[in-house]
Design a protein around this nucleic acid. Structure first.
Length: 379
DNA sequence: CGCACCGGGATCTGCCATTGCG
DNA sequence: CGCAATGGCAGATCCCGGTGCG
């Protein structure tokens, strides 16, 4: 949690904001603007915070400082439903502290009526089997659950996403891992789906629906990205590698789907640095293209990580060609690779002679293999 | 049995800016 | 104007094991 980072930045006493300047300096100047605007308003505004509401929240264990920082307007409301919300969530199995944390992080939750909550929960239960699943998500991301007050929209979203032919399992995974998708307006979700369909068509694809399903199930975050981001990334991929329509279509339906998430600049930066790194090791333009197409996650890795991993392998007397052929060794964390290399060196393993596939296996398989190596030493 | 190939699963919010309404 | 609603952004991998083949 990043909450503690900000706690201590603003202190609120008797209607006036005081700033801890030494802490504020590390942050954005916007905080300074916020300070002056808020203090002016606090003086002018006739609307005071609702004292009994404040008391209720304190009793529920809510972090008032956090609420003031996030949604100060909520504290001035005359009609709220904090107790109803607390009862509701506890009835669904949430602990007291969970409820307090939820309200602290998304104060507007207390403005939702009982009927609204019942209805929203009922709709979520279309996807989830147990209340406990929903509680876990609301606890993780209160904003996803509460930000929109439009239950009709939620219903339409569920209908729309189902109509795409996603399986119940896909839908479940989508709502579990990217709950914000369901807080989007249907129109926004439709726009993304249309964008993907258009891309499929323009690349000569014959099954746009299948294409969309494929991408969503490969990348459940796609619907919470902007169409601008996705479009720009796709255009970049096609241009950077001079891809044929078919190559791009295949890339997007495979591992390429994941890299659509990345910010546009990040994709470009990672591409440049991967390209540079490989070229410095004597790889041709074609090698670079093959490597990235064959192993798109390389664009996901930060320049530092990718470079470190490659250097680590080269340092263990692995040839860059071997990495190009088996890029999935790069899947593993650098710590894992390092410790495996160390163990293999102890066993006298020669990567040049025996290949590096051994590095690219699950822990169980690696250990089993190492076992065999030590039982039957080579030569 | 050992290996190569490959697909899949986990993971992802909390903040800011803008808009439009009453 | 103040607030609610909502769009958008930055952040930056690792691992497991099924299956089919020789």
């Amino acid at each position: 949690m990043t909450l503690s980072r900000i706690t201590g930045l603003l202190y609120y006493t008797t209607g006036k904001f005081l700033l801890n300047l030494s802490a504020a300096r590390q942050f954005h100047p916007a905080y300074l603007r916020l300070y002056s605007v808020q203090s002016q308003k606090a003086r002018k505004s006739p609307v005071k915070e609702n004292d009994s509401l404040l008391e209720n929240l304190v009793n529920l264990g809510v972090d008032i400082k956090m609420v003031r920082r996030r949604q100060p307007g909520v504290l001035r409301k005359l009609i709220t439903n904090e107790h109803g919300l607390a009862r509701f969530l506890q009835g669904k199995g949430a602990a007291k502290e969970t409820v307090a944390s939820i309200i602290s992080r998304y104060p507007r939750a207390i403005t939702r009526s009982h009927d609204h909550l019942e209805e929203r929960w009922r709709l979520w239960r279309n996807i989830f089997k147990a209340d406990s699943e929903i509680v876990k998500i609301v606890e993780r991301s209160p904003e996803s659950f509460f930000r929109s007050s439009d239950n009709d929209n939620l219903e339409k979203n569920i209908a729309f996403l189902s109509s795409l032919g996603l399986t119940a399992k896909d839908l479940h995974r989508l709502l579990t891992t990217a709950p914000r998708t369901f807080a989007n307006s249907v129109e926004l979700n439709q726009q993304m789906v249309e964008l993907l369909q258009d891309i499929c068509f323009s690349l000569g694809g014959k099954q746009p629906d299948h294409f969309v399903k494929q991408i969503i199930s490969r990348n459940v975050y796609i619907l919470i990205r902007s169409t601008k981001r996705v479009r720009t990334n796709i255009e970049f991929l096609q241009k950077a590698f001079n891809l044929t329509d078919e190559e791009l279509l295949n890339l997007l339906q495979g591992h390429g789907a994941e890299i659509l998430d990345l910010s546009n600049e990040y994709v470009k930066r990672n591409f440049k640095s991967a390209e540079q790194k490989l070229q410095s090791l004597g790889c041709t333009q074609k090698d670079v293209k093959n490597f990235i197409l064959f192993y798109p996650p390389s664009l996901y890795a930060s320049p530092e990580t990718l470079k470190n991993k490659i250097d680590c392998l080269l340092g263990a007397n692995v040839d860059i060609r071997q990495i190009l052929d088996k890029p999935r060794v790069l899947d593993f964390s650098i710590d894992t690779v390092r410790s495996r290399i160390k163990e293999l060196e102890k066993a006298g393993y020669d990567f040049k002679k025996n290949g590096i596939a051994i590095l690219d296996s699950s822990r169980k398989r690696f250990e089993a293999k190492l076992e065999r190596l030590s039982v039957v030493p080579e030569e």
